[in-house]
């Protein structure tokens, strides 16, 4: 290599070379090339811990500002919470009664137990609810038993599912993304439908039977069809139905995700086992408590 000439020439052509490389990468990504997929996952694994460290001080700064602003509304919130607590106490009693009743019915009918749900909680490290893609990055991966297809919940309801998994990182496709399709059921009528993301805050119910009695306020939960997501995970409520379709508002604020739980339902295992017997009681009990 001729020293002197080469670097100058190379320097001038460098942006062009890099741009061509970028276009090639995009084309390969579009074609779902496996090496590029592997490269992305490997890079994701490398970046995730670094980003966690870098963003920690910024996150705690924003959190502290947040805590100052919430301090002011503390008193009003306290009164409201006390009232809510009294109400919930009654619900809690009702839930206990129903749970016991449900349990005895299940035993009577010898129902196969629902697959055990395991939860892994993580803080979202990058929620790029970008203009065209709605996704989030989590600092947990195969090492934490996260699998492709796992449901991701925030405190209130389903927010997405895992689409890519690395050793220590995973990507979540949020339910608001244009490519998100979730098999759901309208809880009060048991009508099945598909919940489609539209790149906006509301989601649209599709593939609805024509005679389905839609009522606003009805809860939408996962149907479990397709075997990817567990059944009966809450997602949202119907807010409007009209000529432009039936629209659902998610229970969680998808634009401001902090902590999420990845739900690993061991569904594949349950399907392949095909056994009637529930899992061993000790393990079963522990995991349900989580």
């Amino acid at each position: 290599m001729t020293v002197g000439m080469a670097p100058a020439l190379f320097g001038r052509a460098l942006p062009a070379i890099l741009m061509m490389l970028a276009v090639t990468l995009m084309a390969l990504h579009r074609m779902n090339s496996l090496p590029v997929e592997r490269l992305r996952v490997a890079l994701m694994d490398t970046i995730t811990p670094v980003l966690t460290v870098i963003s920690a001080p910024f996150i705690s700064f924003v959190d502290s500002i947040d805590s100052v602003t919430t301090m002011r509304s503390l008193k009003a919130e306290n009164i409201q919470l006390q009232e809510e607590n009294i109400r919930l106490q009654q619900w809690y009693e009702a839930a206990l009664k129903l749970q016991a009743e449900n349990q005895s019915f299940r035993e009577l009918l010898n129902v196969k137990a629902d697959p055990t749900l395991n939860f892994v909680t993580a803080r979202v490290i990058s929620d790029s609810g970008g203009a065209f893609v709605k996704s989030a990055l989590l600092p947990i991966g195969i090492a934490d038993k996260v699998q492709k297809g796992n449901a991701v919940m925030s405190g209130h309801g389903l927010v997405g599912r895992v689409t890519e998994v690395g050793q220590r990182s995973s990507r979540v496709l949020l339910i608001t993304d244009l490519n998100s399709r979730i098999p759901v059921i309208i809880q009060n009528t048991r009508t099945k439908a598909i919940l489609a993301g539209k790149n906006q805050d509301l989601l649209r119910l599709e593939r609805l039977p024509t005679d389905s009695g839609i009522t606003t306020g009805a809860r939408i939960v996962t149907s479990g069809d397709g075997g990817q997501l567990p059944a009966d995970l809450p997602i949202g409520t119907i807010v409007s139905s009209g000529a432009d379709g039936v629209w659902v508002k998610p229970l969680s604020d998808i634009n401001r995700l902090t902590y999420v739980q990845v739900v690993n339902a061991d569904l594949d295992q349950a399907l392949s086992d095909g056994e009637i017997t529930p899992p061993p009681p000790s393990e079963h009990g522990n995991k349900n408590k989580l």
Binding site: M19, M26, V133
Partner: peptide, 21 residues
């Protein structure tokens, strides 16, 4: 750009291309 693409789930190389250009 590549890091941004990974973080935002954009087509891999898109932000790299835009930023270099």
């Amino acid at each position: 750009g590549l890091v941004l693409d990974l973080l935002s789930a954009a087509p891999f190389g898109m932000n790299a291309l835009i930023l270099v250009l």
